[in-house]
Design a protein around this nucleic acid. Structure first.
Lengths: 213, 213
DNA sequence: AGGGGCAATGTGAATAATCGCGCCTCTTAA
DNA sequence: TTAAGAGGCGCGATTATTCACATTGCCCCT
């Protein structure tokens, strides 16, 4: 079977190993603070060799983003593919929680982009979040009386998104603070239960909005 | 001569102007990505002059942290000064929301520290969050049945904290996404209402936990 | 009153390290 | 043989930091 067709799929190619290393480093330090030397070191090559695979630093960053976006856009597209019911919101939230838990790098990268900018930040926003508010993907129906009349809907959606993402971006702090690995299986279940309960509480909340100022 | 030195009531000293500039830049770009040249440029002096006021870059960063912590530790200390009732939790949350709204730099700095580390990160955690879980500052009483038996209490507290902080760290993204200034007065009221309603929903939620069934 | 120190605060120049990046050569496998 | 990939080398820019100076205002001694 040593055919000379293509041997790229079986063993991770150098380009893929560069992408892996760059993704981790960009997520940790942000775009500008990440040096190509660091990336090359982690791959085990010299930094000039990176230019055999990517045009320059920005192209590498772009490739990292592209790969991440391909994975993370799917659940939202699927949610937008049908009516937004409570169960579908539940399952959407559970999916993205598990996704961010399995790979925290997109959330971290996004947080860096929100704080410091960097290349392709606008594209990042457009492809990850804009579809939430442009299509019919608004939480509607008879179940949510909480946000209907106060104009909080987009903010509420973003709040739940923040809940998921900040869990990941703050994870190193939690490790120290609570003495538990935030990416363990039990921590994932904890996080899922907490978010589910919050969402349930919101769904079932029938009280009046706090008009007191 | 082209100096816009309209000296108001209190003339900020050079050291204070350096602190102001450094705080903004550290919050935006993080510790390592902020250059002393940038800081000096914003103050209007040359970078070697910074060394007349601070020993080195790390000492400057430390001074920035110290000034921020002095402001932001007060509400938590006050909450810990008495029994943790619902109303006191409400008012604590409102206070920190308003504080982060008035000065978003601590949240941004903290997010950078959580992502990339940097000097004094552990001290930052200790002084801002550790007191929440070391003293009696746990949400107790008969009102919160939601988290009592599932061991989620610390995670729930941090979740609300994240809600507040990620609003700030994600603000630039919101500006683009929702077409509204996240730091306007109305946006502040929105954010306050949303968090209050979430907290209320949690307080009044009487359903069974999903894992208990 | 006058001037000699002196600390505080600014500056430009210089240094060593690191950065992104491109040119060129060598190795290796089909 | 050939071409892709890895590495050596170095350029130019930027970094934090130090140093030698210039300038200012203030205290003290005569």
């Amino acid at each position: 079977m040593a055919n000379s067709a293509t041997t790229t799929a079986a063993v991770p190619s150098t380009a893929e190993r560069i992408l892996d290393a760059a993704e981790d480093l960009f997520a940790e330090k942000g775009y500008s603070a990440t040096s190509l030397g660091d990336v090359a070191d982690r791959v085990g090559i010299r930094s000039p060799s990176l230019y055999n695979h990517f045009k320059n630093k920005e192209a590498l960053y772009e490739a990292v983003l592209e790969r991440l976006l391909a994975d993370f856009s799917a659940p939202l597209a699927e949610l937008n593919g049908g009516p937004v019911t409570n169960e579908r919101v539940f399952s959407w939230l559970e999916t993205i929680v598990r996704q961010h838990h399995a790979n925290p790098n997109l959330a971290r990268l996004l947080q860096h982009a929100a704080l410091s900018g960097g290349p392709h930040t606008n594209e990042l926003i457009d492809r990850l979040f804009r579809p939430m508010f442009q299509s019919d993907a608004r939480i509607d129906g008879d179940s949510i009386t909480l946000f209907r009349d106060t104009g909080l809907q987009p903010w509420a959606v973003m709040a739940f998104n923040n809940l998921v993402m900040s869990y990941v971006t703050m994870a190193p702090m939690y490790r120290d603070l609570l003495g538990q690995d935030p990416f363990s299986e039990e921590a994932l279940e904890n996080q899922l239960n907490l978010i589910k309960m919050l969402l349930l509480a919101v769904f079932e909340y029938k009280g009046s909005s706090p008009s007191a100022t």
